[in-house]
Design a protein around this nucleic acid. Structure first.
Lengths: 267, 267
DNA sequence: AAGTGGTCTAGACCACCGA
DNA sequence: CGGTGGTCTAGACCACTTA
């Protein structure tokens, strides 16, 4: 019942049928990876459609990465099949950072520090590197038990960022972006478990060495310059991080609302 | 009103100029979010180009999420500016799952279970739901200390998956995909910290209630059918999860056009 | 210089939506 | 029903690559 060659002439618009046929032929190996597809003119006669239709068809295949076009050269086969890619995406940095909307921050301290051995390892920087450090606690608006302890580190030249940090890391990032003219280009995130050290445990109202989630985020501009690094420590069960990975189909149809977000653990 | 034509006419093809002009007008607020753009015919006369060119222009704007088109209705403005998007991507599921390449798995047990209250909550399923459960330990090839305890749950109809699980979750997923004809379309991942319960702690060689990382992954096919759910528990410091988020530029090369997002987001 | 894809025009018919 | 975007044709000129 499942003969792959039995594929009915695919339905839908002509360009889709052409695209499907080409994709099938590529998968079949009729057109090998690296070789050139027939020219658009040839495809026109081959499928008996206008050039516009051929281009609409090949455009789809370009979009899914099967082929690429180059003026003056031709249309080259890039891959035999569309690789399965799973992606997660964020609408903005705030979705990564503001794990709970209705939270408030309190600033514990702000000052210049030099990285000791532990901090250097955590932030992947040289020992002795100087940072301007903000230490904060994040609370749900309606409770007095903090969710997380956060250390935010920025390069010393940004030490005079406005310290109304209620906007959290995002507003700090925005200020840095404005002042440096750089854009956050990538965020490296490392998640692990830890035994919460006594000082933080005291702040968070849990027993020393009790289980905690530790999230390190390094915000980088172009050229791998670190614009900000934040370290979050949160007792177990106070929140979880969720990410939704979705298969990226060839044709990105339909709305997707994937988001990495953190959600509070049920109380 | 300022004359928008004082802006230097953007370079490039005609459709790009049209797209730029429209994007500028949307950003300016001339066309409000939610409202309809002029019809394609109107845009043709407005810019004095053919309909093909107008469509090529609006297609770009659709790709970057500024507008959407609907046959019979019109072209609607979806956002005032292209929001910064950060995406993370995986080449395949194995990058998500096989956190360390050189590991080996040992099977502790395999059997049918009914979800008790705890499991039901963990897996977000009904209490009493039946699963075929595999319990495993993952070791680095060169050490005897396990890095993680993993429970893999699959729907009972897949209970006779081949139990040579050395391939890990991925090979199990592949088998399920083959047998069900379904594809893993999305993966929901929840990460939290926990105090490792005594039984698992014993298996992992750590003290009961010591800190652990807990990762729940739910693999879903189309229609939100759960094909597999895995629960990983790993003692602190034995491994960390890293993710790299990258800024996705507005109109990059291959229009892996993210579909529209509802949230206009940050002010 | 010949041939490729890139762009653009002018015109046509269709399915679908809303009044 | 009239108007919208969706599809498709036929033809044209261009910039570019390759020989």
């Amino acid at each position: 019942m499942t003969d792959p060659r039995h594929v009915p002439p695919s339905a839908g618009p002509r360009y889709q049928q052409v695209a499907d046929a080409l994709a099938r032929d590529i998968a079949r190996g009729l057109y090998e990876v690296g070789s050139l597809l027939p020219t658009e003119a040839q495809l026109c006669t081959l499928f008996n459609v206008s050039r516009h239709t051929v281009r609409e068809a090949t455009r789809r295949l370009v979009d899914v990465g099967l082929i690429s076009r180059q003026a003056g050269v031709g249309t080259r086969v890039k891959a035999r099949t569309t690789a399965a890619r799973y992606t997660a995406s964020l609408g903005s940095l705030s979705e990564l950072v503001e794990y709970i909307h209705s939270t408030r921050l309190t600033l514990l301290s702000a000052g210049s520090v030099a990285a000791d051995a532990r901090l250097a390892e955590t932030l992947h920087c040289r020992r002795g590197q100087r940072w301007f450090q903000l230490r904060t606690l994040r609370y749900p608006v309606d409770r007095s038990e903090p969710i997380a302890y956060t250390e935010i580190h920025v390069p010393p030249q940004f030490r005079d960022i406005e310290q109304d940090i209620d906007g959290g890391t995002v507003s700090i990032l925005r200020q840095i972006e404005l002042r440096s003219g750089e854009r956050v280009v990538e965020v490296l995130q490392e998640i692990g478990a830890c035994a919460i050290p006594a000082p933080q445990a005291r702040l968070l109202g849990v027993a020393p060495r009790s289980p905690g989630l530790q999230v390190l985020r390094t915000y980088r501009g172009a050229g791998e310059r670190t614009l900000c690094a934040s370290l979050i420590v949160s007792p177990a069960h106070r929140f979880t991080l969720s990410t939704r990975w979705r298969l990226e189909q060839g044709a990105p149809i339909g709305p997707h609302a994937p988001a990495d977000r953190a959600s509070p653990a049920p109380a």
